[in-house]
Design a protein around this nucleic acid. Structure first.
Length: 439
DNA sequence: CTAGGGTTAG
């Protein structure tokens, strides 16, 4: 009867003790791969001039062209910002900033974001939050912090919401220790009360770090302050445990969640499905899909992608395609992950025609955020002398900037392809060139 | 403002 004494903290403590996360290796991160490279200090300069890796000579002329190109785009973006509706369109900002981030143009990012202070919007907390998050996605949390500090003088209201955004900026930049530092110091200093979002953000950070002890301490604090862990709290934990193949412990958290009257949702299920398919337990995955349906939850594109991912690992094209076909049968929209998985695999298996077909479908659906997925197809087409087809794909997908080296003639036809003249606003169309907003 | 999948090779 007396479950009174068994707080959430206590119960999780039992689960966690059974599975000290910190001792389990998480899937490899690219940062680790990089650091290995650093050991190999044979060529230290090669990193800075991150050429695309094809033509060895990146002539000065090309560099120049590129940078003036960029300057023009930045100017154009700033001009677009004059329009209120443009400023309110989040996707346009994140897409543009993502481009800059991929090109490692951090000073340009700062320039563009600083520019936003010119507008009245800067008095709106939500607008400032967006900018802080954009800094965070770009790995520039110090800039977000500076903006946070400036909010009062910008006449912008500053609540726990913007603090949470600052915290996210640190976490998204993988600066977990710094996140912890501001979490411990700032709210108190500013007279703010952490809310469930604050705690969930910290739990996410500590999952990333793999520190079970610290997760527990956050949970304890959450409870102590009378805040109930919610769906997001539990799904964050579930994702982490299943990602580390800790099924037994994950399942116990699952039960704990249900005992709190939180009904597992599509994300809970997908976390588990991913864990299963990554371990080639496809039959179990299928069973779980049946359970989902019984519970009234329809599998979505993420669910299917989990299977495609699993089979891709085995280079099992047949099964991968089977799941892909079923996904479409169910009227689910394949996304960039689907195509990123599928197109290179199909290509590798020598099914060039099928790869072309799927590529064209991706382009038709405007799934263009990861242009590298088309690389094997373009390479293959070019090496087989099918220049015309390759050119058509590149043009249809507006991928010229990525594949110019394969198809030098593209520069000649830099005009607009007759296919899509100014659809909506010419400014926006040009800025986004080959853009997608699916992630 | 907080929870997802994948990606990058010579």
């Amino acid at each position: 009867m007396s479950k009174v004494g068994s707080s959430l903290y206590t119960r999780l403590h039992g689960i966690f003790k059974a599975a000290p996360i910190a001792t389990v290796k998480p899937p490899k991160f690219k940062s680790q791969i990089k650091s290995k490279k650093l050991v190999n200090k044979a060529k230290e300069s090669s990193a800075s001039s991150a050429s695309v890796g094809d033509g060895v000579e990146s002539s000065n002329v090309a560099e120049k062209t590129k940078s003036t190109d960029l300057t023009k785009k930045v100017e154009k973006f700033k001009r677009s910002c004059e329009t209120e509706s443009f400023r309110q369109t989040h996707g346009l900002y994140s897409a543009f900033i993502r481009r800059l981030r991929e090109a490692k143009k951090f000073s340009v990012i700062d320039e563009v974001l600083q520019h936003q202070k010119k507008y009245e919007d800067i008095k709106s907390e939500n607008f400032v939050i967006r900018i802080m998050l954009l800094y965070g996605y770009s790995g520039m949390p110090e800039h977000a912090h500076k903006l946070f500090d400036e909010m009062p003088e910008l006449n912008c209201e500053r609540t726990i919401k913007s603090f949470n955004a600052l915290l996210s900026a640190y976490v998204n930049s993988r600066k977990v220790d710094e996140a912890m530092k501001v979490f411990k110091e700032l709210p108190e200093k500013l007279g703010m009360t952490p809310d469930i979002v604050t705690y969930n953000t910290m739990i996410k950070a500590l999952c990333r770090k793999g520190s079970m002890e610290e997760i527990l301490s956050i949970l304890e604090e959450t409870e102590k302050n009378g805040i109930e862990p919610d769906m997001i709290t539990f799904n964050t934990l579930l994702e982490e445990f299943y990602r580390r193949d800790l099924f037994a412990e994950g399942d116990r958290i699952w039960d704990l969640m249900k005992s709190k009257n939180l009904v597992p949702n599509i994300r809970s299920y997908n976390s588990r499905v991913r864990g299963l398919t990554r371990n080639k337990k496809f039959a179990d995955g299928i069973d779980l899909m049946d359970v989902m349906r019984t519970e009234g939850i329809s599998p979505d594109a993420h669910t299917y992608n989990a299977f495609i991912t699993g089979y891709r690992g085995d280079e099992n094209l047949e099964e991968a395609l089977k799941w892909y076909d079923e996904m479409k049968e169910k009227r689910l929209i394949p996304d960039s992950v689907t195509y990123c998985l599928l197109i290179p695999l199909v290509c590798k298996k020598g099914e060039l025609d099928r790869a072309v077909e799927i590529s064209e479908e991706a382009i038709r659906r405007k799934v263009l955020s990861r242009p590298n997925m088309f690389r094997p197809v373009i390479e293959r087409l070019v090496s087989e002398g099918k220049i015309e087809k390759a050119t058509q794909i590149v043009k249809d997908g507006k991928l010229q900037s990525y594949f110019r080296s394969y198809l030098p003639d593209l520069s000649a036809g830099k005009e607009k392809t007759s296919s899509s003249p100014a659809a909506s606003s010419p400014v926006e169309a040009d800025l986004l060139e080959d853009e997608e907003s699916d992630d």
